[in-house]
Amino acid sequence: MHAIKIESADFASPAVQALVAENLADLSARYGGGTGDDTPLTAADFTPPNGAFLVAISDGRLIASAGWRRHGGDAELKRMFTVAAARGRGVARRMLAAVEQSAREAGCKRVILETGNRQPEAIALYESAGYERIEDFGFYAGHVGVLSYAKAL
């Protein structure tokens, strides 16, 4: 893998939507059936000042994504994903740091997120990056296996 560049992207663009589809397929495989994540999202959620959507690019290909949208004074992390071929190389950690910086610059006080108990890699990343468990919130609040986290910015 060559140099990795992280930049803002249009959530509605075909290339981003193809990566999001891969993310949802991964979630569907982990949790069984469905679309993987039924949380209502629109491109406007990731358009400043409402939020931002970032991608990592290597050799002209999108290899990771992460976005945030406003949730009160917080930034809610959504669509954090790294393609299988790029995992284990620190890409997700770089993406998480870029989201945190973007949210901080937009005046958010913390990043919050929902993940699931069948995503051990994500849980390990968030906990090692200083995220702590909080009361469940959002679309999947109260669902079995949901884990919610937050980190002050």
Rank of each mutant, 00 (worst) to 15 (best):
R87W: 03
A122E: 09
I134T: 14
A122I: 10
G88D: 01
E105I: 08
R89H: 15
D26F: 14
S28G: 15
S58A: 15
T42G: 14
T82F: 02
F81R: 07
A98P: 05
Y149N: 01
R104W: 04
I57N: 13
V55P: 02
G72P: 00
L153G: 08
G130Y: 04
L77P: 04
L153R: 12
A12C: 05
K109N: 14
H143Y: 12
S128F: 00
A64L: 06
V20D: 12
G33L: 07
I134A: 11
G90V: 08
T47F: 01
K109S: 14
G130A: 03
A124K: 13
A122W: 09
A84V: 13
G138F: 08
N23D: 08
Y31Q: 06
W68I: 13
L27R: 15
N23P: 04
V91I: 11
I63N: 02
S65P: 10
Q119F: 07
G33F: 05
A52F: 05
E127G: 12
Y131E: 02
A85C: 00
R89P: 06
P14K: 03
G33M: 06
A52R: 15
L77R: 01
A44V: 12
Y126A: 01
D26V: 13
M95A: 02
K78Q: 10
A15K: 14
M80L: 13
S65Y: 08
E132I: 05
A75E: 02
I123C: 15
A124M: 11
A66P: 09
L147D: 06
P48G: 09
E22T: 11
G145Y: 00
T115R: 07
S28L: 11
E22C: 07
Y126I: 01
A129H: 05
M80A: 14
A141M: 09
R69G: 14
G32C: 09
R89T: 14
N117Y: 09
I57M: 12
A43F: 06
V99M: 03
T42E: 13
M95Q: 03
R94Y: 00
N50V: 06
A85Y: 02
A56M: 06
A9I: 08
A124V: 12
R69V: 06
D59L: 10
A25I: 10
G116I: 13
